[in-house]
């Protein structure tokens, strides 16, 4: 049986573990207010974000990235947020994001 202090410490470790290990990537548009708000949110919470502004890409790279983005969520609105391996969030859904990232 663990005490309260240990339990809190463990929770903190778990939280840190989750936040540090869940890689967050996103497919965004440079013109989209929701994508901008999402990027700002991640910055404010100091969470590393790997994002691609799909509209700024050209040629084969653009086709490849669009295909990749829609493989996660076909027909979704932007940003398409991918957390870890398989958590996909469509659009800047702040409550959902807070829940998944334990914020």
């Amino acid at each position: 049986m663990i005490g309260y202090a240990q339990s809190v410490a463990l929770q903190r470790i778990n939280l840190k573990h989750t936040r540090n290990n869940m890689k967050v990537k996103a497919y965004t548009l440079s013109t989209c207010p929701y994508c901008k708000a999402f990027k700002r949110f991640m910055k404010e919470h100091n969470i590393p974000l790997e994002f691609t502004d799909v509209d700024l890409l050209e040629g084969e790279e653009r086709t490849k990235v669009i295909k990749e983005a829609y493989s996660y969520c076909s027909g979704c609105g932007f940003p398409i947020i991918v957390i870890g391996e398989d958590i996909v969030i469509e659009g800047f859904n702040e409550p959902k994001l807070r829940e998944v990232l334990h914020l």
Partner: peptide, 23 residues
């Protein structure tokens, strides 16, 4: 922010397409 996005699309495409969708 929406106006900015729309105007960016006017500049690069010539028409104000939706800033929240991929043109």
């Amino acid at each position: 922010s929406i106006f900015e996005g729309l105007y960016k699309n006017v500049e690069r495409y010539g028409y104000p397409s939706c800033p929240c969708r991929l043109s």
